[in-house]
Design a protein around this nucleic acid. Structure first.
Lengths: 140, 140
DNA sequence: TTGCTCCTCACGTCACGTGAGGTGGC
DNA sequence: TTGCTCCTCACGTCACGTGAGGTGGC
């Protein structure tokens, strides 16, 4: 177990780019030390990075993540703050559920369109050009 | 049934902004006529707009949509082109399915995190601060 | 000297949002 | 004159990607 990491090591470990690490630093999400001009990341930065990527995975914006990390920092852990985070998570869960139904309808729509095109190709194979037009109109 | 539309009329009908209509024109997706300095949209533009929004809804990029609209324009409808579009639709369907599983795991993950936080709050309510730390570690 | 890893600008991407400042016709 | 709708720049947003040009130590 190392206690410090270079930017390249963290990038490899989490499969992200160096640019991404630097970008998160620009945004104030992580604050690595410096050894000369080079960045040095400690346990704290690594842990924060893990939380950031977890937040991203569940669809939070970097600004939202930054805000929650602040809460996490004031580790006094006021229950009121926890409750605030909790209600945001509940809200976000709703957003995710809506996104899922949106994707579901997109999938259905695309699948139906594929069937329409396949029908067109079949109609063509039967040398019935007029039928092709019919299918096209029906797809409207 | 009108045969021409102003930018505002189309925007209202499809619930999009004027900027969006102008942006699609910049991208070459639609080419409205001009009446003086004002844009005038005909049936063809309206139909294209409908296809564009449909494409967006199923998750295609504007560049991809532009390409497919070209095919649609060369309405000779070579079967080879239809088959090309068809294979892209199939590919895109796979992309959508992967997105859905990604969202599903995000939902699961967030739901589990919510439960963890609720447990923390419950542990706190029982005045057991040590237990709170325990829950936090277990969440790693 | 070559190769690797790191660095700092800084512009590009995607799909628009958002003013700023101005025009035309009721 | 006021209000509405339209116009053209042009910069901003989000989360980085992608060079360009340079440094340090094996």
């Amino acid at each position: 177990m190392q206690s410090t990491y270079t930017i390249g090591e963290l990038a490899r470990e989490f499969s992200i780019s160096l640019r991404t690490l630097r970008f998160y630093e620009d945004k104030g999400l992580i604050r690595p030390q410096r050894q000369g001009v080079n960045r040095i990341y400690g346990h704290r930065e690594r842990h924060r990075l893990r939380l950031i990527l977890l937040g991203k995975q569940v669809g939070f914006s970097l600004d939202q993540i930054a805000e929650m990390l602040e809460f996490y920092d004031l580790k006094d852990g006021r229950s009121s703050q926890l409750r605030l985070v909790l209600s945001r998570f509940h809200q976000h869960l709703e957003v995710l559920r809506r996104q899922r139904t949106a994707i579901d309808t997109a999938i259905d729509e695309l699948a139906r369109t594929i069937i329409v095109i396949e029908d067109m190709l079949r109609a063509r194979a039967e040398h019935d050009t007029a039928a092709v037009e019919g299918v096209l109109e029906a797809a409207e």
